[in-house]
Design a protein around this nucleic acid. Structure first.
Lengths: 210, 210
DNA sequence: GTCTATAGGGGGATAGAC
DNA sequence: GTCTATCCCCCTATAGAC
């Protein structure tokens, strides 16, 4: 099905939009070029005309998805103006908003990434982007009395991302376990925008990270 | 490659073990029956002889994986003897141990589950298993003063599972961001056995879940 | 740029010998 | 139970007309 705003898009954009939906929903191997052509309502041959091959098209979608996935944090990490607490709130807002719109992205990225043959990860320019970030520096300062090390910093990041991203990935199970319909699930996620920063703060105050 | 202890297994077991490794690592669509036959070092025709079809074999692996994934919590939920805090510690121990051995399970289960056409979820006997559990009852009692509702209970469960499961699913990205080798990553996970229960407790004491 | 037709190969499954 | 040989569909990709 074409979405409303895609009706006047050109062919290339239509193919990309269709490919994104299908790849993200079903993965590379389960998505057939015929499905993409149908979804975009274009002729199958046009996929190769514009993108060369299924794999090339996939790589484009994957790189864009990874970028979106990291976008939520990368730009916030090195903001010199905001405090650590403000950064946490920023990240929470960005991720919940983003994932409410595109909930399939993290599962898509991570499940295609697990195949070690795909070396998307090594291409990413994030080598010490986090460890040397303003975010990490502010964390160390805040934890100076308690004594912080790399482990505690990583736990901090893991906890933040876990609480924001995992619920969207596990939506089917969470909804089933909690007997939630879509609206109830969305409300729960919206609540987490404010709750996660509070919880993260209370974890930091625990001071038992040693 | 055959693992050591599989050398003396019979053919059926070998096929299942190989199928499990490949399905969990690459998913249904990306796994070829020929790959499974090679991995198990058996003749391709034997796969159909024992299991009928690729899909039937897959369903067996999937049901077993889902069971393993839920096993970590289901049996703990309704233990009448242990306190809520003990249950949290139990779940942390079980999940970290299990996921350290079989880290691919959650990503496998969740990525195959997202395809709504697969109705594995509806077959699961977990309808009000959690909401009516001893675990949930104990949570309500503990939170009685603060005032607890279904939302806060679900947030509690989501936080617990997130902090335990997500880091294993995102290992490639976490390792890359934190510049961690496998040993460092494993150590970090082992630390979380004790840390997650502490953090969960400090979140509960926040009393800002409203 | 867009279409039809088809090449070419891969992959699931089975027949039938042993 | 295990093997070889093979069927046949489906999928990606392309040639070539318009």
């Amino acid at each position: 099905m074409l979405k409303a705003k895609e009706k006047d898009q050109n062919t290339e954009q239509r193919i990309k939009a269709a490919a994104q939906r299908l790849f993200q929903r079903k993965g590379f191997a389960a998505t057939k070029t015929r499905d993409i052509a149908d979804e975009a309502q274009i002729n199958l041959a046009l996929l190769n005309y514009y993108f060369g091959s299924k794999e090339k098209l996939f790589k484009i979608i994957m790189m864009e998805s990874i970028f979106k996935f990291l976008q939520g944090i990368i730009f916030v990490f090195n903001d010199e103006q905001s405090s650590l607490e403000e950064k946490v709130q920023q990240i929470a807002n960005r991720y919940i908003d983003f994932l409410s719109k595109e909930p399939e992205v993290p599962l898509f990225v991570l499940s295609e990434l697990r195949n070690e043959s795909s070396d998307f990860i090594h291409q990413l320019p994030i080598d010490n982007l986090f460890l040397d970030s303003v975010f990490a520096k502010q964390y160390k300062e805040k934890m100076a009395e308690t004594g912080s090390n790399k482990s505690s910093l990583m736990h901090f990041l893991i906890n933040l991302l876990s609480m924001l991203v995992f619920p969207f990935m596990s939506k089917p199970i969470i909804s089933k376990i909690g007997n939630l319909n879509n609206k109830e699930f969305d409300n729960l996620m919206e609540e987490r925008k404010n709750l996660v920063p509070i919880w993260i703060e209370s974890i930091l105050k625990t001071h038992d990270i040693s």
